[in-house]
Design a protein around this nucleic acid. Structure first.
Length: 894
DNA sequence: GCTCTGCCAAGAGGA
């Protein structure tokens, strides 16, 4: 039995005499049954009182196997010998977090804030780990070393290393492992698994073990340890994995640390041992210590989010009993505590940040941590929802039929499975996902990449084979982590000049344009002015590009102008698609000297020829990136270790209105000046939590400094009739067709004859009321009618390829998709593209309740995808229930 | 109640 619920009262720790002598106790009151039950007393005994000291009212408490007691006049529970006590179990602590927290709580925060920069020990460590995995998979040592070093070419090159010296060093580490594997330790009964992904719902832990040997965790270290015992924090790390295995009902009683820098010269004087391996026993005492440490960490994180003051400082922790004199982070630690004006045992360096900057940092830190909680909630669904619910939620492909496992290059595996019928999910080709035997938490799961997702078969590549019966979306904290780092770099490391404009202490400045400068763009004044603004900006420039106004063309022209002026340019955007589109425009204008940074899966096929392949000769790779005058990457990639080492004169950021403020900073941090391009009247950033992240830096700056912005006001996409509503509602009537031809376009231009259409569809904009009924997020009758409308257009001579259907919900998208060959998608996914004819299914009947309709910007996006004809399909009564939609209805019916 | 793109993640060192 497990007791679980929010804490409603916390007592002090006190000492009581028992028949076993003096013992410490701490009484809490918890409201069980998800907070619905009456509060009960929970008594924590002995060392669990440590967790009681960190508990606060409002935190969630979990106690496994409690004993009932009737102490006093009230029934309650106490911890038993078998009990585990977990605070905030929903907060998933990463194993490496526990490890650094044990070393020094402040180090945990420093790592989290500043990220681990590109440095040789870490890159080498990664290579050794990869080789270790290869050895376990039976790859030849020399082959593995050469291959993995080559794979790390780019990083090594940026660090200035030669492949041969790295190979030698890695080989020495790997040889130690190989020697150990061969010296009889590895017997026939040994079973190995490398890179084992673990999530523990009970203990609120997650992480990836380097390897499991006979079910016990093995951790690889590239350092040296000549002591008899493993280092304590290394033991903690291995113990974390043991604990997570215990949550699955497996009980490893040992852990192994492999210190691969140990050589024969380091023979242990006491034991005579020259093995790199140190085995230790994993007892309950150690495991309980792990849990208490994790609780301490989770409690600290809880306090950050629940501090009544939203601008309370970042709790960079305290040093506990760490000895700062040996700490490698000492300098960073002193700088950060100096900047944040916090106590630090190591001392402070530098002046504290101005108060507004500290407040900004705190506000966004908290916003990002809220976002992290939302990500954790996604993890929770992995075990709280049934497989069927996950599938219903579009977050998993279930009931797969395993069709075979093939070993591929590098000892990895290619898994195939048949998919049942019309499985819909968020999962897409190229995604990293959790492949499992049917149970991703308690069963066997492997993190892998979906390489193919066809009509009836799915293919995944993983490190180890697994019976492929289910694939789940794997929530990742990487964007939160990288946003935090970007925030740190911008505020704690950012230069003063940049911060003065970001914090409104100075207005952005522009240099005077040379009087005799030729226009950059001849036939479009606003576009020309936008390029000029960007070129002349000494701080930043903003380009507001409504739908169809030639935003991408302007970006390409701007980049060329900047390169002509001798500048090194970073081209960034939120999505891979936007990066590739901008790159395409740049190449269309004859500019080819670009490098695209991104994964093979992320980068579009026709841009692969300029994609930076990381594998190769270090010197060459570093040159390819470092010498490129234009580098293009997503903002997420800009936050990567490699990109954080790059410096640019100007960062041009597309889709800036879809980026959170920290997300934008990841790109702008890398450059002296920046140009943001976007449209804050279209969709805002996608975030899970509701907070400061919902407003983009683009929007904040354009509202604060309209003079730094230029709005592109001529659109090349929509007919006059189609654009008029959006122009009036969203752009103050300033959006105009670029030419009479654009304004006057119609279906006749496609060779279709409006006379062949039913009268209700003959207009440039039409409204159809199918009299359907909304059922959840779908409306079947409306879906049928939408398909009918598409057919009518096709019958009148419109190519089905030229028709797009937009619906607000994925359920309706699927419903319509079954009935037509036209492209059907959600509004959000249609942003950035257009079609000759657009049909919009509104789904709602009766009223327009729901968040999807609240943000009118979504409607702006939907309406402005159409070029020549637009038909709205929906319930007139629902539309008339809200003024904005009523105006929309009037316009459509006109 | 809804929309959803990025990212493999974890990787070192010493008294």
């Amino acid at each position: 039995m497990t007791l679980r619920g929010p804490i409603v009262d916390v007592g002090d720790v006190r000492t009581v005499s028992t028949q076993y002598g003096d013992r410490e106790v701490c009484e809490l009151r918890v409201r069980p049954d998800e907070g619905a039950g009456d509060p009960v007393r929970v008594t924590l005994w002995g060392k669990w009182t440590h967790t009681g000291e960190h508990a606060e009212v409002g935190m969630e408490l979990l106690v496994t196997d409690p004993e009932e007691d009737d102490f006093g006049d009230e029934a309650g529970y106490t911890t038993s010998e078998e009990s585990w006590v977990v605070l905030e179990p929903d907060f998933l602590v990463d194993v490496t977090g526990v490890r650094s927290w044990v070393q020094c709580p402040r180090m945990y925060y420093l790592n989290k804030l500043s990220g681990i920069p590109l440095n040789y020990p870490v890159v080498k460590g990664t290579v050794v780990h990869e080789v270790f995995g290869d050895l376990l998979r039976g790859v030849d040592l020399d082959e593995a070393v050469a291959d993995r070093v080559e794979e790390a070419g780019l990083e090594l090159g940026l660090l200035g290393y030669e492949p041969t010296e790295v190979e030698d060093e890695v080989r020495r580490n790997a040889a130690a492992v190989e020697g150990w594997l061969e010296q009889g330790t590895l017997t026939e009964t040994d079973t190995w698994r490398s890179e084992y992904t673990l999530i523990s719902p009970t203990f609120g832990l997650k992480g990836r073990a380097d390897a499991l040997r006979r079910g016990a965790p093995v951790e690889l270290k590239t350092g040296k340890n000549t002591k008899r015992e493993p280092r304590f924090h290394d033991k903690m790390q291995a113990a974390c994995y043991a604990l997570m295995l215990a949550d699955r009902g497996e009980t490893p009683d040992t852990g192994t640390l492999l210190y691969t820098k140990n050589t024969a010269l380091d023979r242990n004087e006491e034991t005579g041992d020259l093995s790199p391996a140190k085995e230790f026993s994993v007892g309950t005492g150690l495991l309980k210590f792990v849990v208490r440490t994790r609780n301490e960490l989770a409690a600290m994180e809880w306090r950050t989010l629940n501090d009544p003051d939203p601008e309370a400082g970042i709790p960079t922790g305290y040093e506990a009993d760490a000895k700062c004199q040996y700490c490698f982070e000492q300098d960073t630690c002193m700088v950060v505590s100096g900047r944040l004006n916090q106590e630090s045992k190591a001392g402070q360096i530098g002046e504290p940040l101005p108060e507004e900057e500290r407040a900004y940092l705190s506000r966004f830190y908290r916003a990002l941590e809220e976002e992290r909680r939302e990500t954790h909630a996604e993890y929770r669904k992995l075990w709280e929802q049934t497989a069927a619910e996950r599938a219903e939620d579009d977050r998993a492909l279930i009931d797969l039929d395993p069709r075979g496992q093939t070993e591929i290059e590098g000892g990895r595996w290619r898994l195939r499975a048949g998919t049942p019928g019309d499985a819909v999910s968020k999962l897409r080709e190229g995604d990293v996902a959790l492949a499992s035997d049917g149970d991703p938490v308690a069963g066997h799961a492997e993190l892998g990449r979906i390489t193919s997702l066809g009509e009836d078969e799915v293919v995944v590549e993983t490190d180890e084979p697994v019976e492929l019966r289910r694939i789940d979306v794997y929530p990742s904290e990487i964007s939160v982590d990288r946003s935090l780092t970007a925030l740190h770099d911008a505020v704690l490391k950012g230069d003063e000049r940049r911060k003065d404009v970001l914090f409104g202490r100075r207005d952005p400045e522009f240099s005077a344009a040379p009087a005799d400068r030729d226009p950059f763009i001849d036939n479009n004044e606003a576009q020309d002015e936008a390029v000029a603004r960007a070129v002349d900006a000494e701080d930043f420039a903003l380009v507001h590009g409504p739908p169809g106004t030639g935003k991408t063309y302007t970006i390409a022209r701007t980049i060329r102008a900047l390169v002509d002026a001798g500048e090194r340019v970073l081209l960034a955007a939120f999505t891979n698609r936007a990066v590739d589109n901008a790159l395409e425009a740049l190449r269309d204008q004859g500019f080819e000297d670009v490098v695209r940074v991104g994964s093979q899966q992320g980068v579009r096929g026709d841009m692969q020829d300029v994609r930076l392949v990381r594998r190769g000769d270090p010197g060459e790779k570093a040159g390819e990136l470092g010498d490129a005058p234009v580098v293009a990457a997503t903002t997420a990639a800009c936050g990567s270790r490699v990109m954080r080492e790059q410096a640019f004169d100007v960062a041009v950021v597309d889709e800036a209105s879809q980026l959170t403020e920290p997300g934008t900073l990841a790109a702008t941090n890398l450059a002296e000046r920046f140009v943001l391009v976007g449209d804050h009247k279209q969709l805002p950033p996608v975030v899970r939590a509701e907070n400061d992240l919902q407003r983009s830096l683009f929007q904040r700056l354009i509202e604060d400094h309209p003079e730094a912005g230029v709005m592109l006001d001529r659109q090349y996409r929509m007919s006059q009739r189609i654009q008029s509503f959006a122009s009036a509602e969203f752009y103050d009537g300033d959006l105009r067709p670029a030419t009479p031809a654009v304004a006057g376009q119609s279906l006749a231009d496609l060779g279709a004859d409006a006379a062949d259409l039913p009268p209700a569809l003959r207009g440039g904009v039409n409204f159809v009321d199918p009299d359907g009924d909304r059922d959840g997020n779908r409306n079947v009758r409306e879906a049928e009618r939408v398909a009918g409308v598409v057919d009518a257009y096709v019958d009148a001579g419109v190519d089905v390829e030229d028709i797009g259907v937009i619906a607000p919900f994925r359920a309706q998208v699927a419903e319509i998709g079954r009935r037509t060959d036209a492209t059907v998608d959600t509004v959000d996914r249609f942003q950035g593209s257009s079609k000759e004819v657009i049909v919009i299914s509104l789904v709602a009947t009766g009223d327009l309740d729901g968040p999807i309709f609240e943000d009118h910007r979504r409607m702006n996006v939907a309406l402005t995808r159409a070029k020549k004809a637009l038909t709205l399909v929906g319930d007139a009564e629902a539309l008339a229930s809200e003024p904005f939609y009523e105006r929309l209805l009037d316009w459509a019916r006109r």
